[in-house]
Structure formats: C-alpha cells, structure tokens
Amino acid sequence: MSNRRDFMGMALGAFTGLGALGALYAAKRTWDPLPSVKAAGFTTIDVSKAPENVLITEVWRGKPIFILKQSKEMVEKAKNRPISNNSKFKDIDRLIKIGNDYYMVVVGLCTHLGCIPDYRPEKENFLCACHGGMYNSSSDVIKAPPPRGLDIPPFKIDGTKLVLGEEGPEYKKLLADGITLPV
C-alpha cells in the first residue's frame, strides 16, 4: 500500500517537476531579446572626413559610439604615456589605425554603470557626471570608479569605413590581447 502511494507520489512529482522546468525555460526564452533586436545590430560609418580632436557620436545597437580622430600630438602622447596601474597596455594599443590615421572608437557608455561621459577637447579627457569617473583621449581610465577603459565595439575595417557589429581581424586581436572585453 505504502509502496504504491510512494510510487504515485514520485511519478506525479517527476511529471510536475518536468512541466515546471519546461515552463521555466519558456519563461526564460520569453525574456530573451527578440530576433529583430538582434538582427538590427550592424552600422557602417565612414571615418575619413572626421576632424581631429572633435568627438563624433554615432549610434550602434541603440548605444552611443564615440569616434575621436587623434591629432599628431595626441598620437605621440598615447605612444609615450607610461603604462598605468589599472591597465597592462600602452594607450596606443587602444587606438584603431585606419590608413595613416589613428582613431579612438569606443562605446560611449561609462564602464562603471553606463552613463555617457562628456568629452572636453581643451583638456583632452572625458568626464562622467554620474560618479565622477574620467578617461583620457585614448579612452583609458584616469580616475575611478570605472574598472576599465571604455569598451571597443566589434568592428571590421573596410577601406576608410568601419562596420560595427562585425568582428574583423583587428578587433579579434584586441579581444585576444585582453585590451577590450566583448560588448
């Protein structure tokens, strides 16, 4: 008698458990981003006409993308700036070379909590008004709380154009070297 009850209890428990797992999976999938959201993830930008030290803001996946063409002096500084405590790389490594010019191309959201930092061309740095974080003109952190420099979006270089959302060899190298994290 008791065995029969135990069996029925376990059978019922197992089937309801399975159903509950299935329902949980369906609920999880319902909260996933829609295919249309994922598909609209590519943006092409022509950077050839960008002026030096003027911040250009584009949009990719709804996020602001900062493009800053570096002047000769800025490139020199990025090459020579000592490696800071919170990064293992030279600032020049964070810049993207297109033709003969260097560009800072980053997601314009503070790596702390996602506010948009302000560029101050005269000081050649970014200030995030939310929690006071600062970045230099090659987007590395110069003042906490941000844990790392601004993230570099996946890109592919196509002549003087940048295709955001596609992973070119230059981007894969940045990822492999740990200079940026996947966005």
Binding site: W31, D32, P33, V37, G114
Partner: peptide
C-alpha cells in the same frame, strides 16, 4: 547595469533583463 556584477562582466544577463542591448 548593476546586474553585470562589475568584473564578472555579465552583459548577457543585463541584455536578458532588458530584452535588448539598451532599455527599449
């Protein structure tokens, strides 16, 4: 963004909560 857990960098979780790359 708090749900990315700082250095855990759980962007997938944040995107899952939002259902998008950004609040939409």
């Amino acid at each position: 963004n708090l749900f990315s857990g700082g250095s855990l960098h759980a962007n997938g979780l944040v995107e899952w909560i939002r259902g998008d790359y950004i609040p939409g």
